[in-house]
Design a protein around this nucleic acid. Structure first.
Lengths: 357, 357
DNA sequence: TTTGGCACTCTAAAGCCGAGAGTGCTAAAC
DNA sequence: GTTTAGCACTCTCGGCTTTAGAGTGCCAAA
């Protein structure tokens, strides 16, 4: 599950029991109703039978240490990013999902789908549906891409449709421009050769093998092999599985009162579309173990001010395939969100494992 | 180009020249700067050398007739939906695109792409980029779907990957569950048979031919034909080309001051995601000729209050393939948007025609 | 160390005011 | 008959003040 030690965020000086308890109560209260929490409220909430005055002293200390912040003199206190950090790392009491919820998730994830993108869509819908936040699933990505089958179809004079089946599941189609026209027979033979020769091999190796060894010797090759080389050159040219992700439920973010600044929101939505920056963020999570959480600007990414990102990588046979998670206002119900992200990642991994055969 | 007569919207009583001119000037002014227009401003703007008092009288008449509306006693006037309608149908002076702009568009649209979805994405990016509104492109849809090629690949015991090439361009992949396991040879033969027999045929006919004629005679068929029938049953089961569209640049809508109501905006965004309702709207435009415009609630679709939709169908060989267009605040620069949508539809049609071979 | 008390601060909501924009109407001018 | 000037009137918007309430910080007593 979520490894509390593993998360970075600066060291915390020892706080005594009571102080921690009050911080915890304050954050929970603030997460619940979004209002700055005052001493009287907190005193009642914490169940410690302390007077507001005492609580005030503690709160002053916590503010001094950078865990809390007053919006202004006479409002209550609000957790800072640092405060959330401590809360999540040390104080949070997770609320694991019920069996029924897990079962619901499993059923939805195990439903048959056509391809990885569709599965990603389903899962990010799930994430966003359960949390009422934005769900994100990074598409499966492998460093070992196995060629399962390749097929060439002539579309016109110099255009050939390539159908590439990878990893037993993923199908890619691409259209390539050829130097000269090929007839159906030639294409068929080339495909046959490639399939016979390279099925089950890693695609990078295929490329290596074909191009390094054969390209220079091109002139001396027979006609078939020349065809093979030209096809292969373009077929395996670019990284066949692009890096991408699927977002669902962005609109939920428009409902959180915390993110009501229209312009901020717009920038956030644009970030979802541009992808580049967010991909960078997710890449960081790829190699972390278990659930990882970025609070506000911790992500080093201005647009996410006021937002938190909760992610978990999902793996098949120890190989990290991608990351999934949730993006929402920093004031989110971590106790529910963290287990959900965690379980979802596991279920997705399990589903992919099954399909792997 | 845009056929002014064809658009519905109720008949308009004859307005004299001057009144029309003033309405036109008012709408233009309002579109330009978004403020209710007062009599003094309009008098100066219209260039008719009239006193504000005269203009006031005219405005009062126009309000009486339902073309204008005062937000309150002492603001200027604002066009009503009816006012926009008249403006667009009878008063608007289009500003055609420059040759350079058209050339830019053409180049972007003619760039080689992998498939219809990618092209749709490009075009809706274009639409949204040029207008700073949301661009929409409905994916090509044909009632005649030609089978170009089919391929079967065994994935596991009872799962077969079907690769379907349609209309020379579109590739579809689907995974089907079979009743019994098939080996590679059987699948290959089945595919070979189907290709030999049905390439170039309409896919509905293929389904008809195979299933109606052969299913009942199943028991008497040889092994090959039994395979063919089982494959075909599932391969051609569902409508192979789904109805869908691509939206780009929604975030632009968050910038228009007109649509600053966060909750309205949220509903609009959700409508983009749910698709169903909007698809219905676009379906209506499919069979209209040329550019069509819905103003606000005219679309009969509450979420679009305050929004206008400008669409045009695009056709290949007289067959309507889909619709594209733009969604934005009713206060948009119609004189630019209409020609843009019109030209884009033509260019897209041309591009698709070329690719058709 | 905790607590009650108290003066103090700050915000948010409500109310008020004046300036400005724009109207509608009327009576005079064209 | 149409157009215009004049004028009283209306309404909003921004700024200002006021007030209630929430919450603090500090001090002195328990």
């Amino acid at each position: 599950m979520y490894n509390k030690e593993s998360t970075p965020g600066g060291s915390h000086p020892a706080l005594n029991e009571r102080t921690q308890h009050l911080l915890k109560a304050l954050v929970e209260r603030y997460i619940r109703d979004g209002q700055p929490v005052g001493s009287r409220t907190l005193a009642r909430d914490a169940g410690l039978d302390l007077s507001p005055a005492t609580v005030r002293n503690v709160m002053a200390d916590l503010e001094e240490l950078g865990y809390l912040h007053s919006p202004h003199t006479s409002a209550g206190r609000v957790p800072t990013a640092r405060g959330y950090r401590l809360f999540i790392d040390a104080l949070l009491h997770l609320r694991p999902l019920g069996d029924r919820e897990i079962e619901t998730l499993r059923q939805r994830i195990d439903q048959p789908v056509q391809n990885g993108a569709e599965l990603a869509r389903t899962v990010s819908d799930l994430l966003s549906g359960f949390t009422r936040l934005a769900g994100v699933v990074m598409l499966p990505r492998r460093n070992v891409v196995t060629l399962r089958h390749v097929e060439f179809l002539s579309l016109s004079e110099n255009r050939v449709l390539v159908v590439l089946v990878l990893n037993t599941q993923e199908v890619q189609n691409r259209i390539i421009q050829t130097r000269r026209p090929y007839n159906a027979m030639e294409l068929q033979q080339a495909a046959y050769y490639l399939n016979a020769q390279f099925t089950g091999k890693d695609i990078h190796q295929v490329r290596e093998a074909l191009l390094r060894d054969l390209r220079e010797a091109r002139d001396s090759l027979d006609r078939l092999m020349q065809t093979v080389v030209e096809m292969a050159e373009q077929t395996f040219e670019t990284e066949p599985v692009g890096e991408d992700y699927v977002v669902a439920g962005q609109t939920h973010l428009m409902q959180c009162t915390d993110l009501s600044d229209l312009d901020k929101l717009r920038q956030l939505f644009e970030a979802f579309n541009h992808k580049r920056d967010l991909l960078h963020l997710f890449d960081q999570c790829l190699h972390a173990e278990g659930v990882q959480i970025f609070i506000g600007e911790e992500s080093g990414f201005g647009v996410l001010e006021g937002c938190s990102v909760v992610t978990a990588p999902y793996t098949v046979e120890g190989q990290v395939l991608g990351v999934l998670g949730v993006i929402g206002p920093t004031r989110m119900a971590y106790d529910r969100v963290i287990p959900l992200v965690d379980v979802t990642a596991r279920l997705l991994a399990a589903a992919l494992n099954e399909k792997r055969d």
